[in-house]
Computed example of a mutant assay.
Amino acid sequence: MQRGKGMKFVGDSRIKAEGKMPNVPKDYSEYPGKTEAFWPNFLLKEWMIGAIFLIGYLIITVAHPSPLERQADPTDTMYIPVPDWYFLFMYQLLKYEFASGPYNVIGAIVIPGLAIGALMLVPFMDTSKERRPFKRPLPTAFMLLAFAAIFYLTYESVANHDWEKAKAQGAIVEEVQFDKESEAYQLYTGAPGASCIGCHGDAFQGGLGPSLVNTGLTSEEIIDIVHNGLNDMPGGQWKGTEEELQVLADFLENLK
């Protein structure tokens, strides 16, 4: 055989065809934008951004700590809890006629389940590699609809909630010392003042109604409010005698 003739080239899979760095992927030109290695290039950038946001969040929590309410009282059935701001849209949804009461399952499970299920199916319904939103109308429309619904329901919840009353019912009130066996307290919690404890609490701390501690009112003013009402409190709620009301009014005047 003559030299240089009949020579064959044999490929070896153990030898790399290109001498690129191990962490640099091929340039996939069909995908827009610059490509880079996931480890460590991309992941390092993600960690750096995450660390910046985490530090910023920690600074905000130290500078503006979360406000606390009074100690939870399981016997207080008049307290109306309100979720955090990111769940206010769900809180508002449960106020509507066909999402509350006997239809509570629809508002709490069916509607959120359909919405989340639709968002989860969007990637399978639109498999386009296009990144521009106006080129992907289906997922863009779903996301805009979800954002609009969440924004509207959150706004309605904030606008229609009585935040002053919520602040009053959750306010931390210094506990007052009193004798639960006294005649005045028995009148307050008994039949003559049966509706008092429901609004003003079992320890006069307040709830739907204001706190009765350190009111600065005289016994005469308290009696007048009981008879004629004040603000949201209706008059004519006292079921006892005038002598019993005087005992309770004297007790509340000195409740400090």
Rank of each mutant, 00 (worst) to 15 (best):
E69S: 14
W85I: 15
Y86P: 13
T215G: 03
G33Q: 06
E36Y: 09
G193F: 00
S182T: 03
T127D: 10
F9I: 13
R132N: 13
P192W: 04
I109V: 15
A194Q: 07
E253P: 00
A203C: 08
A168S: 10
P234H: 02
D179F: 09
A37M: 07
E30N: 08
G236F: 01
V24P: 00
L43K: 11
V176N: 04
V62S: 13
L212T: 00
S100W: 06
Q71L: 10
L58G: 13
F98T: 12
R14D: 12
P25C: 08
P22Q: 07
G209F: 00
Y96I: 06
Q177I: 15
L245C: 02
D12V: 09
P234Q: 03
T35E: 13
Y96S: 09
G56N: 03
Y96K: 07
W47I: 13
N160K: 12
F42T: 10
Q246I: 14
G33I: 04
L153N: 05
I60W: 14
D250Q: 14
L68N: 11
Y103G: 04
F9Q: 10
Q169L: 08
V110W: 13
Y86C: 12
D250F: 07
A171K: 14
F38L: 13
F38E: 12
L187D: 00
P65W: 02
G216N: 08
V247C: 03
Y31P: 02
Y31T: 08
F134G: 09
M21Y: 15
M233A: 04
G6M: 09
A51Q: 07
W238T: 00
E164H: 09
G206S: 03
M143K: 11
K180S: 12
E221G: 04
V122L: 08
G198E: 05
L138D: 04
V173M: 08
F142P: 01
Q186G: 03
Q205Y: 04
L58V: 12
V122F: 04
E221Y: 05
I52T: 05
G11V: 14
R14H: 13
P192F: 02
G117R: 08
W39C: 10
N41D: 14
L153V: 08
A63L: 15
F251H: 03
F151T: 09
V247H: 02
D12E: 12
Y152H: 09
F151R: 06
V24A: 06
G235S: 01
G50S: 11
F151D: 08
T75G: 10
G113H: 07
C196V: 03
P139V: 00
P102W: 09
A99H: 06
D250P: 02
A249I: 04
D73P: 02
E244R: 00
E130Y: 03
G101K: 03
I172Q: 14
R131G: 10
R70I: 05
V105L: 14
F251E: 00
S182N: 05
V247F: 04
A146R: 02
F53L: 12
S13P: 14
A17S: 15
H64G: 10
S211K: 01
E221Q: 15
V110Y: 12
A108W: 15
